[in-house]
C-alpha cells in the first residue's frame, strides 16, 4: 500500500533529480565555456596591448629618429666596397704577420757551417714542449763563445752533449712500450703527422717529467717522424735519428732567416 502510494512520489523525485542533474551538467558546461571565452577575451586584450606597445616602440624608434641620432652622435656610414670580403682566404690576407726586425739578433754569415743537429724543428710540434723550456734554452748558450753564437743565430738552440741524450732515451723507450693508450693517440693524431708518430708523441709529452735539460727532450719528436712506421724499433736505436736531422735543421734555419 505504502509502496504503491509512494511510487508516484518516487517518480516525481526521480525525474526531478534527473532534470536537476541535466541542468547541473548544462550549468557546468556553460561555466566552462564562459571561462574559455574569458581567456579568449584576455588573449585579445593582450594582443591589443602588444600591438599598442609595438606601435609605441616603433614610433619612438622610427627610422627618421635613428637617422637623426646617427647623424648627430654615431656617425655610422654604409660599408665601403673594400670592407666586403670574398671569404676566409681574403680575411687571412688582411692579418699577415708583421715583419719585426729584431736589432739584437746577431749577424749571421751566409756561409755559416751547418750544425750537426739541433732542435728548432721542435717549434713545429710547439704544443708538445712546455713554453718556459723553449724560452730559457736559447739564452744559455748565447753567453758562451762567439763560435757558439753562430750556431745560435741560425738555429736558436745549442746542442746538448751526447750523454744526457742517452739518459733521456731510456725512459722514453719504457714509456712508449707501456702506456700507448688508444684514446690519447686519437686526440693527438690531429697535431702530429700520423698514427705511427702519434704513438711516440705521448711519450714526448711525458718526458718533461724527468727533470733534464729541455734540449734532449725535444729531440724525441724528431725521432718519431723521421723513423716513421715502426716507432718501437726507431726509438730502440737512438743513433738512427741522427742522419735525417741536418736536412730538416737547415730548412728551419733557412726559414728563420
Amino acid at each position: 500500500m505504502s509502496a504503491k502510494s509512494f511510487r508516484s512520489v518516487g517518480w516525481v523525485a526521480g525525474i526531478a533529480a534527473t532534470a536537476l542533474g541535466c541542468y547541473m551538467v548544462n550549468l557546468k558546461v556553460a561555466s566552462e565555456r564562459a571561462q574559455l571565452e574569458d581567456v579568449e577575451t584576455r588573449i585579445v586584450l593582450a594582443q591589443r596591448d602588444i600591438r599598442l606597445l609595438q606601435t609605441e616602440i616603433g614610433t619612438r624608434g622610427r627610422l627618421a629618429q635613428l637617422e637623426q641620432w646617427n647623424v648627430k652622435v654615431l656617425a655610422l656610414s654604409a660599408p665601403k666596397a673594400n670592407q666586403f670580403l670574398e671569404g676566409s682566404f681574403q680575411l687571412a690576407t688582411l692579418t699577415a704577420p708583421k715583419k719585426v726586425i729584431d736589432p739584437s739578433a746577431p749577424v749571421v754569415l751566409a756561409s755559416a757551417p751547418a750544425p750537426v743537429r739541433s732542435q728548432p724543428i721542435v717549434d713545429q710540434d710547439g704544443p708538445t714542449l712546455p713554453a718556459p723550456a723553449l724560452a730559457t734554452a736559447p739564452v744559455q748558450p748565447r753567453s758562451t763563445s762567439p763560435t757558439d753564437l753562430m750556431h745560435v743565430a741560425s738555429l736558436k738552440r745549442d746542442l746538448p752533449d751526447p750523454t744526457p741524450q742517452k739518459v733521456v732515451e731510456k725512459p722514453l723507450v719504457r714509456r712508449i712500450v707501456t702506456p700507448a693508450p688508444a684514446p690519447r693517440t686519437a686526440s693527438l693524431s690531429g697535431d702530429s703527422k700520423g698514427k705511427a708518430t702519434a704513438t711516440v708523441v705521448p711519450a714526448v709529452k711525458v718526458t718533461p717529467k724527468p727533470k733534464t735539460a729541455a734540449a734532449p727532450t725535444t729531440l724525441k719528436p724528431k725521432v718519431a717522424p723521421t723513423a716513421a712506421p715502426k716507432p718501437k724499433l726507431a726509438s730502440a736505436t737512438p743513433t738512427k735519428p741522427k742522419p735525417p736531422l741536418p736536412s730538416t735543421k737547415t730548412k728551419e734555419a733557412g726559414t728563420k732567416r
Binding site: 541542468y23 548544462n26 550549468l27 556553460a30 561555466s31 564562459a34 571565452e37 574569458d38 579568449e40 577575451t41 585579445v44 594582443q47 591589443r48 600591438r51
Partner: peptide, 17 residues
C-alpha cells in the same frame, strides 16, 4: 534558456582582433 541559452555573464567582445 537554461538548456540552450547563453549565460548572463557572456562577453560581447570580439574574439579576434
Amino acid at each position: 534558456l537554461a538548456a540552450f541559452g547563453d549565460h548572463a555573464g557572456r562577453k560581447t567582445l570580439v574574439t579576434n582582433l
